[in-house]
Design a protein around this nucleic acid. Structure first.
Lengths: 337, 337
DNA sequence: GCGCCACTTTGAAGCGCTTCAAGATGTCAG
DNA sequence: CTGACATCTTGAAGCGCTTCAAAGTGGCGC
């Protein structure tokens, strides 16, 4: 009797059970109805293989049960790792995660965020957010925005997990200065996102305090691009004796370039990474870098999402701290010839 | 006059222009109406800042303009890279890509595919597909399914990009055998997906022809897990003299374990990777591995998606060939003591 | 037995857009 | 000037679900 080929709808269940569509809708979600009714509806739904249509539901209710994970650039290994972990952890029976990539374009980031809002995403996780844009305020009032990496400006209801770049950069530069370095290059993600500015300002300020001469060089995440930038830095005179790469993927480029140029790590050049990619420990010498508590971060974000969706309450702000992992890519600079 | 705060809908444009909603709908999409009408509607839409609601559109039309990229396991670096590239390339004014991760679970893969269908995805790119499940046929008739990595069974309208694992595995084993190895371990993605079986069968068959003793060991993609598997393999007796890792990420585990155990690459152990991750060339010794034409693959997939969506025609099947990149992690086995 | 209350059930009105079939308008041949 | 035809335009019916307000049900105290 039931096999019409068409996928079953609420109406079919209503017909099956002799109830109204409204009653079925409520019962299926456990919102109303006697236990007996709910059971009867459940049973019919299962028998017919009913699956709610998310699109119709989204249109009617304004919510969708899906979470957007909006990455600034999936070329960044750290973002890849974080996004993958979030995708996995956010998956739940009643909820799923869409990962999308704004490919390094700040305008596109906003546009995609709006797109997520249009799709009735319950929450949007942005890594890292471009705090320059004021439009976030508008988006934040339509969906729960969880900003990772930097502060969300002008949005009243904030939910933010910040990276303590102050601590990271400061520790890094101190470490290099402590080893005796006086001139270091800082490889920094390109400035398409304003987000990086603060890290650079921090770097400048700290370097000044340490009497360190630093040079900030924008650098892409892909190996070929990073290698090229590193090559340029390493062939400039005077050549810096230390490099801080604000992403391990950029540090990889330094390995490649210094191998090419016959520069020996760490004796002739010290190098510090920033986000402890798994393979960093396999390099020769193993890369000294920073560990950020990824699992903790992911758990925190999941909790925020859950709380934002269920209770509409926004957690305020937490900060994630880095730990320096010494592995052998930093040494004293070569004594002046 | 126009600023009601509410975001503008078709109805608002209809009111603005004095046309019916239907006329506006057609005109906006350039389907009907005189050029003059279309221009008038365009103008009003822009003035009001109208943006079509994708959810309502999807409900009414059954199409959504979005493409799902369904990854079996985003832990695999190769999948990460491919998904990121696809996400970037599939993005277009009228189209966007959602990346989702089934976290290594074949049931979940199907379930998420169904979910994408429910969301009216125009096409679904699956990497790699689990060809064991017959349910794909059902899904393929609701959306264009583009299978990457293995053949989609039982689906009439096929669109597939296959990896020539036969060539890859064969070349790899021949290379090891040619170097004098007699006993090799093959690290293979765990079998949660049936997809890997063919590669294993191929390996067995080829090994037999080469008089090679091989042992197939399931292995996870994350560094810690891969290291543990590698450790087990390398402490078993007799210890294989060569390892073929069917993913570079697994090869990384071999580097870690052999460093731990004091086994020198390549003199005491030869190692072959499978998917040329950028950082593989930075290891000591650099990993010999296979290059698969990623850019070509991505372009091919984008073309398939476009053609499937626009013309509803499905391209048949292409195969992607690997190239062995020799870099120094393979040598003759140590002479028997 | 009546009225009140708490709860379940229902009809109907959307959500914002597409699309079908019918109506309106205009063009051109005869 | 009429009829046939091609186009443009429109009203209305959905797409499948939620939700509001009204209607129905039963239990309980008095």
């Amino acid at each position: 009797m039931s096999g019409t080929g068409r996928r079953p709808t609420l109406k079919d269940i209503a017909a099956e059970t002799g109830l109204s569509m409204a009653a079925v809708s409520y019962a299926l979600r456990g919102l109303q109805g006697t236990p007996e009714t709910q059971a009867r509806v459940q049973e019919a739904a299962e028998r017919l293989g009913y699956q709610a249509d998310p699109v119709a539901r989204a249109l009617a209710s304004g919510r969708s049960g899906s979470i957007g994970v909006l990455c600034a650039s999936l070329e960044d290994l750290w973002q890849q790792r974080l996004a993958a972990a979030l995708g996995r952890e956010l998956l739940a029976p009643d909820r799923n995660a869409w990962i999308i990539d704004s490919a390094g374009d700040a305008d596109r980031q906003l546009q995609l965020a709006q797109h997520l809002v249009d799709h009735r995403a319950d929450a949007i996780v942005v890594i890292p957010i471009d705090p320059g844009a004021k439009e976030w305020a508008k988006i934040a009032q339509q969906a729960a925005v969880i900003a990772i990496g930097d502060a969300l400006p002008a949005a009243k209801a904030k939910s933010e997990v910040l990276f303590d770049n102050e601590a990271g950069v400061s520790t890094a530069l101190r470490r290099l200065a402590g080893a005796g370095h006086r001139s270091v290059a800082v490889l920094s993600p390109s400035r398409r996102f304003e987000v990086e500015r603060p890290a650079e300002e921090i770097a400048q300020r700290i370097a000044f305090g340490l009497k360190l001469k630093i040079r900030i060089v924008p650098c892409p995440h892909d190996l070929a691009g990073a290698t090229e930038v590193a090559r340029t830095v390493l062939t400039s005179t005077p050549r810096p004796t230390g490099i801080l790469a604000l992403a391990d993927s950029m540090a990889f480029g330094v390995y490649a370039a210094s191998a090419e140029l016959g520069i020996k790590l760490p004796d002739e050049l010290s190098l510090l990474g920033y986000d402890d990619q798994p393979m960093s420990q396999l390099l020769c010498p193993p890369l000294s870098t920073f560990h950020w508590p990824l699992d903790e971060l992911v758990a925190d974000v999941v909790a925020r999402v859950t709380s934002a969706v269920d209770t509409n309450r926004r957690v305020r702000r937490t900060t994630v701290e880095p730990t320096l992992i010494e592995r052998g890519s930093v040494a004293a600079p070569p004594s002046r010839a």
